[in-house]
Amino acid sequence: MDLTRHYFDLLGLPVDYSVDREKLSVNYRQLQQQFHPDRFVSAADQERRFSLQMASRINEGNRVLRDPIERAKYLLELQGVEMGTDGETLRDPQFLLEQMELRENLEEIQQDIEGLERFVEQIEQQIRQQGERFSTQWQESPEQARTTVQQMQFFQRLIHQAELLLDELI
């Protein structure tokens, strides 16, 4: 069985940063209707094992293609651009300064549920903007695109921290 088919192909979408989410949902559901382990409860052992692998892969593909940062990383990976480790340093002083400010901002609102929720929305907006930039970069200048993704990951970590704080407040 071909488990190496890439996610865009598996989920019936063209290889691109912009994704038709509706089509992704429809295709995803259609694939799971067919391959989910619940459809193989009475099947022979190997079919059940294949179905587990297929369904896992379909789920993972759906997650990656749906997520703006994972999708960007995946496109680079398909082009053979390695993302490297998460903690790699960015050499953009301006960007790092902004990050520090956002972090301080986060400290100040750590007890404030509404403030934290607004903060998350604001950062998500930033990620969307980076995504737009990424879609113009990834084919022509993958190295720049890679920097954009690293910046998105910085934003992602801020969201994660804000969410941990929110978890503690509720």
Binding site: M1, G12, P14, F35, Q46, E47, F50, S51
Partner: peptide
Amino acid sequence: VNRESEFYAARRMDQSVQQAFSGQRIED
């Protein structure tokens, strides 16, 4: 029986994946 029919199960799965989007592939 399970062991001996494994190759067949694999072929069947393969075929289903091929068929899943055969209609939509062309436009892509």
